[in-house]
């Protein structure tokens, strides 16, 4: 393709960073280069014969490129590659390892909502949605993507510091036999059994049970 002789050092650490399948290509600038380096990006579906250029990431000076739309089919796997340009010379194409959106994404904690009576707490959990570039698109919960998705729920009695841990598959939990007029703090985590994926724990949601009637 009539490319120049490429003597520029290569972009480094070219990799996908993915959260809820928002798949963004990241890299570090070539060693020893300051400002002025421009980049172009291409990607390929594994098993399909051609590299595809990403026009929105052509001649860019930032060191990331959002490829979420191009890699949204999580039944496929992908490669991406970056080339650097500076002062009329260029680097080699530097590739990622094979990217599998299903196993190589990170998952956000679930949303937690809590209500209480005098002696119980009700907890409703909502799994994050698969990232969508276009808000008009249909929402897909990660629950649909990962059939083995479960929730780990932690409930802490603020007074006694006693903590319970629950592991549930459905998204609601009622914790009975609690003390009236007592503060409890709830946080939850997503746990996918295969492939093994764990979110962090959500921030704590504290609530006080009603006083005795």
């Amino acid at each position: 393709s009539g490319e120049l002789y490429c003597s520029l050092p290569n972009p480094r650490n070219v990799r996908f960073e993915s959260i809820n399948m928002k798949n963004v290509l990241h890299w570090s600038a070539p060693e020893g280069t300051d400002d002025g380096v421009l980049y172009k990006v291409k990607y390929a579906v594994y098993g399909v014969g051609k590299w595809i250029r990403k026009p929105e990431c052509r001649n860019i000076n930032r060191t990331w490129c959002d490829l979420s739309t191009e890699t949204s089919d999580y039944e496929e796997q992908y490669y991406a590659s970056v080339k650097a340009f500076l002062n009329g010379t260029c680097s080699d194409w530097m590739e990622t390892t094979r990217f599998n959106p299903l196993t190589d994404t990170k998952i956000d904690p679930p949303m937690v909502s809590v209500s209480s009576t005098d002696r119980s707490i009700s907890i409703i959990l909502t799994a994050p949605e698969k990232w969508k570039s276009n808000p008009e698109e249909e929402s897909i919960s990660l629950l649909q993507v990962y059939p083995g998705l479960q929730y780990n729920v932690s409930v802490l009695n603020k007074k006694t510091k006693k903590r319970w841990l629950f592991s549930i598959s459905n998204n609601t939990l009622v914790v009975p036999w609690l003390e009236p007029g007592t503060a409890y703090c709830v946080s939850a985590q997503i746990h996918v059994t295969t492939p093994v994926l764990d979110s962090g724990f959500s921030k704590e949601h504290c609530i006080t049970t009603l006083k005795d009637k």
């Binding site: 594994y46 098993g47 039944e75 390892t97 059994t193 295969t194 093994v196």
Partner: peptide
């Protein structure tokens, strides 16, 4: 499957780096 999956995850990068052919897949195309 979790056992198989864990075993594969431990060697995935090593094994896939030995396969330079991007344009052909055995199972998916």
């Amino acid at each position: 499957l979790a056992e198989i999956r864990a075993g594969f995850t431990a060697i995935k990068a090593n094994i896939q780096s030995r396969d330079p052919v991007r344009t052909l897949s055995i199972l998916s195309h």
